[in-house]
Amino acid sequence: MNLNWLDAFLITGLFSVFMVIGLALLLHLQMGLARIANFGVVGFWGLGMYVYGVLYVQVDWPFDDPWRFLLSALAGVVAAGISGLLVGWLIADLDEDGVLLGTFGFATIVWILATTETALTKGALGLGGLQFPYRLGNAKQNEALWLLILIVVVALIMLYVWRVHRSPYGRLLVAVGGNEPLAQSLGKPAFRTKLGVFTVGAAGMGLLGVMYGVLERFLETSNLGVDLTLAAVVGLVVGGTARLWGPVVGVALTVGLFDIVIQSYIPLPKSWYGQAIPVLREMVFGAVLIGILLFRPLGILGDMRRDKLMRSMHGE
């Protein structure tokens, strides 16, 4: 297949856009429906990525890919899920500030561990030796296929979220997020519900971390800063936290516009490409977040419309 139009930069850019859409969709379940603000997205994502990377590289596996990859990846997803369960257990009954600080603190712990546990992670030097679980002809073809697989995974996440909106489970999340005491008085276990959505979301974030690790094939602790959380949160808030399409619209307009359109097609000074652009990106994202919260706090798509949804599902 002719892949000349697809350069390495575009692959990474598209991968990053779809990955952040996936993270924002998972965040939408937690923050948009169940109203648990998770500011530790990068922690779950990074834990998945590093558990996978360390196991893949440091363990003397008796077999090769795809089993070596599958088992390491599964361990990454499970570790992220278990961390979500534990963090969720600690924060589920806290107020919003407590939840924000608790999740942010968790992400910081993951970053510090990845930096200091050099025997396992190689710390700031970075962990190399990762590979795609398949070998097509050249690197570009491998990367293009991996991007395609990621798009399928994100589409499946979106399909799941779409179904959640149309299911009793989605209603439970919205109810627990909206009025926890009332939901409890109707016999709904609010704490367990929040723990569940936090665990499932964290596991999903871990999976996306594993997939990013495979694409990069080199794990750097610099990825574990707040940038990724900020990208997912800003994308979600810009699009609309409560809407299924919120993450897609929001991330396309923020990460998509900045990482692909501006960086690829706007002639920015060459000297900016080292330090300046990432800082500029965070400044722009921060400013967009403030602007949206001031002028359109429910995001571009606005609040959820259960009345329309119910009519479309059950008539009248």
């Binding site: 209603r171 439970l172 709904k188 259960r306």
Partner: peptide, 15 residues
């Protein structure tokens, strides 16, 4: 006490 984002049908199906 009400669920601000749930419709009447939603609320009753939830119960």
């Amino acid at each position: 006490m009400d669920f601000d984002r749930l419709t009447i049908w939603d609320s009753l199906l939830f119960a």
